[in-house]
Design a protein around this nucleic acid. Structure first.
Lengths: 205, 205
DNA sequence: CCTGCACTGTGATCGAAATCACAGGGTTTA
DNA sequence: TAAACCCTGTGATTTCGATCACAGTGCAGG
């Protein structure tokens, strides 16, 4: 796997350092990559697949914040890594995925020595921050019907597919809503000719 | 005003550079420091007072995300500055405040030359990111009564006072709720002996 | 093939919060 | 001092979404 292609700005030395110390791990669709409360020992760089990042509620329930795709990194793991605190989020593989785990101990060193690395870190914070802002927008200002449309649209963008294999229950979990509400809203969208509904599959129009 | 005391890690050279190029501005309580959609020309360092950072809804309404106090900086202005995009937030002075405006053009240079500056930037991203996560928590998982309690508690922490001069309408605006709802919830809190209500003032117990 | 289970559709009910309506009390200002 | 205005309290109504209840349907495994 030519992972360097995903990070074209990394200096050769940095690539070498990572290659020597990082571990590549494979996850199957649905696997939990990181749990809330788990101690963080490494920063995750996504090489392949799609990772979903959730915020979890101690009283049960979860809430999908955003996706990570190839070439992106988990901002939260960087934060926790340096502060050596536990994870405040949960990460789940949406499809089979490959992830490069870079040990925390290297982070400080890399930040100092490699300009491309700290630019990457800064860039990561920036984009996640922007995404968090639109998450706030959605839940603060939008109703469930709009949030559902946003959810479907975003998924289509991230995967590039017009079909979406998922059950209503799973959507409800991601949006921290309930299955019946999602079913009804989807039916309305079907009547407005925005989607076609099938068993375990939604077709976007 | 000995602003350097607030940023003890800044190298003398960096302090000098900032002193030469930055402009100090004063705001009165209630002043809008930055509007949504406004073009960002500088990064704001808070020297004195308290700044409230809001997300605005194009269809009207706003939502308080967090506070900035002395020694803190606006993460969003850093992000927008470097990407030279417009502001995605609104900033309002809660009390009379002093702010140091550092021109965008310096940012790149400072990031490269001064370690203390980039550590400060990274640290700023980190803490704002953490705060955004708890904002998401609140609106995704909590009801209005809990959010109101959190709001009052946070304000008490930020100001160190047990009294809070504010109208119910203003609280409703900050929480993107309505005046009647806040009035009723406050009454319930008074019955539970958590607060005492007065005109334009709330006393925390 | 049929049995069980996961997925979907839909009605009924409940609860939280938004909205409407209005009254009374305090403050400001003309 | 009277009028106008803001702030607060409270009832009634409506809307959105959660929850309960239950029925039908497709699918997988024995």
């Amino acid at each position: 796997m030519e992972w360097k292609k995903l990070f074209p700005n990394f200096e050769p030395e940095l690539v070498e350092l990572i290659e020597k110390n990082a571990v590549q791990r494979s996850f199957n669709a649905g696997d939990i990559i990181m749990r809330t409360g788990q101690y963080i020992k490494s920063t995750a760089l996504v090489l392949e697949g799609q990772i979903k990042i959730y915020r979890e509620n101690p009283e049960g329930g979860e809430f999908l914040m955003y996706y990570l795709g190839p070439g992106q990194a988990c901002a939260v793991s960087m934060i926790c890594a340096i502060q050596s605190t536990t994870s405040e989020i949960m990460a789940k593989a949406e499809v089979d995925s490959e992830v490069l785990m870079v040990p925390v101990q290297l982070m400080d060193d890399m930040m100092n020595k490699y300009k491309s690395w700290y630019q990457f870190v800064i860039q990561t914070y920036r984009s996640r921050f922007d995404e968090l802002l639109s998450v706030v927008d959605n839940i603060a200002f939008r109703n469930m019907d709009e949030r559902l449309e946003f959810y479907l649209k975003r998924h289509a963008e991230k995967t590039g597919k017009k079909t979406f294999e998922i059950s209503h229950q799973e959507i409800a979990d991601d949006l921290h809503s309930s299955r019946e509400v999602i079913s009804r809203l989807l039916k309305k969208m079907e009547q407005r000719n925005l989607v076609r509904l099938h068993r375990n599959m939604i077709e976007l129009i």
